[in-house]
Design a binder for these strands. Structure first.
Lengths: 148, 148
DNA sequence: CAAAAATAATTGCTGTACGAACTAATTGCA
DNA sequence: TGCAATTAGTTCGTACAGCAATTATTTTTG
């Protein structure tokens, strides 16, 4: 009997997610993009709505506050984003893309889109929809309110 | 338009996997088990076949060698496993469960099984099978040989 | 048999994840 | 109004993930 963990669905899920992340990261690195996927996800969120607070970025990405602090630190160090204090609430920052940040997004987006096609190749629209539906169902099943 | 990432299936996948991991970890912590899920996965592998080398554990868990080194370090520090050098190949260690390790497994297994039921509640056998099948398909789709 | 290639494990560095403790600012309430 | 509770963000400590480089041992092969 081979040593697998077919009886551990959570393991299968994590394994696939890990390889997916790895694949996108390798694609970025190979293309010479000097960012991580986690940084990319934050850039994407800012691209959809610029000037968000770190708290809102945390919500949108499902990451926690300290993690966002560090990712924003790195993005600011690379001059892809900048922090400006929110005049309405001096505890908050507004995180804004710099021109360089926008340019990076423009350069990386097609790379990501090509990688995405490659990653999900072989799955038809229906399979894809079922997968996303089931994943979201499990996700909601495990939301903190549900699991106390 | 809310800020979501429904157009990023990889993100949905990672988000669910992360919450799953978080859920199991919280369950372990709440039950007073002084281990992480990653450590638990290694213990499980050793429970199926004791005395494996770190290399084989890495293969079985899909983790890389340095990660296994560090996890085994921690498990040995907690006296749940021990390293004995392989007389047939002095580069290798044989990783063995200690009695304490076996006892921990016995204690934690029912906790994990209860959590597993809770996590996948609401999915019937067929949905489950389709999910696992699709995940494995994507996983294989992304295996290093396929993606170069 | 000796030099070269391969292998198992380790170490170092960067980045991410989570909890806890902390600061500073804001809001709620008495 | 003034003190308590909240909230946004940071920092710290521990653990996992990946890559690169290193050591020690084994296997190849010339």
């Amino acid at each position: 009997m081979p040593i697998t963990s077919s009886d551990m669905p959570g393991f299968t899920l994590e394994r696939t997610a890990k390889r997916m992340k790895q694949f996108f990261q390798q694609t970025l690195t190979a293309a010479g993009a000097d960012i991580t996927i986690d940084q990319w996800v934050v850039l994407q969120v800012l691209n959809q709505k610029d000037g968000l607070s770190q708290f809102h970025i945390a919500q949108a990405t499902f990451k926690d506050a300290p993690t966002i602090t560090r990712i924003i630190d790195l993005l600011c160090k690379k001059s892809l984003t900048q922090r400006t204090t929110d005049p309405d609430d001096r505890r908050r920052f507004r995180i804004q893309l710099t021109p360089q940040g926008r340019q990076t997004i423009a350069e990386v987006l097609p790379i990501i889109e090509r990688a995405r096609e490659k990653a999900w190749k072989g799955l038809d629209q229906q399979q894809m929809g079922e997968l996303m539906g089931t994943l979201d169902m499990v996700f909601n099943n495990l939301s903190p309110e549900e699991t106390e």
